[in-house]
Design a protein around this nucleic acid. Structure first.
Length: 417
RNA sequence: GUGGGCGUAGCUCAGUCGGUUAGAGCGUCAGGUUGUGGCCCUGAAGGCCGGGGGUUCGAAUCCCCUCGUUCACCCCA
């Protein structure tokens, strides 16, 4: 056991998995860039106050933040999510609206690690600030859906709900609170604690003992005002118009406090663990204002990279690409020729690798095979003498041939095309 | 944070009732083939049996602590 290992909840992403991560982000980039979103890269570190505005009642902010006082006596925190940072950036720079941005990167939450739940975890996401239009909600949800489709995922369930406008939500929470209070003796002790902090989240309890009380709890749908109702049905109509399947789940309560009106979640069908939420988001009108900016509507989502990749594994899609080179140079003259040849090939746009330590030809040929190269370029004493190299196909049979070094690049380009 | 499972080679795992030198497959390296990969054969390297303490003549094996991981709760992506 090595003396040093990654801290709990932290891990190394090694090749070839790292290549898959890059492709994941690139696929997301392509999906949302084509919809007019530009990338924003907020810092990992923010004044802790930025995140406190996200909600005083969420564990993410109250219990799970990596926060510390820096050498300048500033109380800062590693970001637990990126929506707050994006809104802070909006307030700070005041870009023209609609401001459509995407991001990708790590977040930090001090939780007990589990598969699909790490202390440093990556998310990709988008945010749109400015427009107050349910059809924008539809666009945002649709982009998330399309992205999952592009990855090849089939078993993703889209759940949508409306939390109503702040007044609706407040009345709903009050009714919920009353309902749970009157049935408090039938709630688990854990849920009683949750009730005191955030009645909404009691709906999230997975303890079977709570199920009956939750089942009879008030429904948000009965508390939506005219505005929220119209908005929500516009969202549902829009999704139907795009042929995007969804289920309305009026028990869907998102974790962060800032959500209003439309909320949604993408749930993986193949992950039967508790970590099956691949991503989620919603409208958060009011967050920009809370951060000291003008009253600005906003909506967005974040998707968990790890969990989504786990779902891809379960469905056997979006496999990690095999990293390979085109050509492998085998040099039994000591290695200097391999140095020169690989450099020459790379400068001509041919991906080339080689072996080191002047190993035997057999050993180098094995390495050539493992490299995935299409052809081996072999140089030994005879070739060095005559200014030639041997070009040997590795994949589809074919005879090896001798070519002069000056013709090598052109020969290879022909063979590889 | 609470509770349960599991930690043996780089990886996946055997290891009987506590018994003498801890094994296999894969992978790696070398050889069989003095200039040629895959398949096959042979060999080698590689282990503080997660760590610490205890019980015992003797511990990978039993007990305690600890660390890591995993599952559920919790939380959430």
């Amino acid at each position: 056991m090595p003396e040093f290992q990654t801290s709990p909840g932290m891990r190394d992403v090694l090749p070839p998995e790292s290549a898959r991560w890059r492709r994941f982000v690139r696929t997301f980039d392509e999906t949302v860039s084509a919809a007019g979103y530009g990338q924003v890269v907020p810092p990992l570190l923010e004044d802790i106050g930025v995140f406190h505005r996200v909600g005083e009642a969420t564990d993410v902010v109250t219990k799970e933040m990596y926060d510390f006082v820096d050498k300048g006596e500033r109380h800062v925190a590693l970001r637990p999510e990126q929506t707050a940072s994006v809104c802070r950036a909006f307030v700070q720079h005041r870009p023209a609206t609609p401001w459509k941005v995407w991001y990708a990167g790590p977040n930090f939450r001090y939780e007990k690690p589990q598969r699909g739940r790490y202390r440093q975890f990556d998310q990709v996401g988008i945010e749109v600030l400015g427009p107050d239009d349910p059809l924008l909600d539809v666009e945002v949800i649709a982009l998330g859906w399309r992205f999952f489709q592009r990855l090849g995922l089939r078993q993703v369930t889209l759940m949508v709900n409306s939390l109503g406008e702040p007044d609706d939500r407040a009345r709903f929470v009050a009714a919920l609170h009353a309902h749970f209070e009157t049935n408090i003796e039938r709630l688990t002790p854990e849920s009683r604690v949750t009730l005191a902090k955030n009645p909404l989240r009691v709906l999230d309890s997975k303890r079977p003992e709570d199920a009956t009380v939750i089942a009879t709890a008030p429904r948000i749908a009965d508390f939506l005002g005219e505005t929220a109702r119209r908005s929500f049905s516009a969202v549902c109509d829009g999704l139907r118009a795009l042929d995007i399947p969804f289920v309305v789940n009026d028990r869907l309560v998102r974790g962060l406090d800032y959500y209003r009106l439309t909320t949604f979640e993408f749930v993986g069908g193949t992950l039967d663990s508790a970590q099956n939420a691949l991503g989620g988001g919603g409208r958060y009108d009011g967050l920009v204002e809370d951060l000291g900016g003008p009253d600005t509507p906003g909506i967005g989502f974040a998707l968990g990279l790890d969990r989504t990749l786990l779902a891809c594994d379960a469905e056997g899609v979006f496999a990690s690409p095999a990293s390979r080179v085109d050509v492998f140079v085998v040099d039994t003259t000591g290695g200097l020729n391999a140095l020169l040849l690989t450099d020459q090939l790379r400068e001509n746009g041919i991906r080339a690798d080689r072996a080191y330590e002047n190993r035997s030809m057999k050993s180098q040929m094995k390495a050539a095979d493992r490299s995935g190269a299409v052809v081996a370029v072999i140089i030994g004493p005879d070739e060095a003498e005559s200014g030639t190299v041997v070009v040997r196909p590795l994949r589809d049979g074919g005879e090896q041939s001798s070519v002069s070094r000056s013709d090598l690049t052109n020969t290879l380009k022909r063979v590889l095309s």
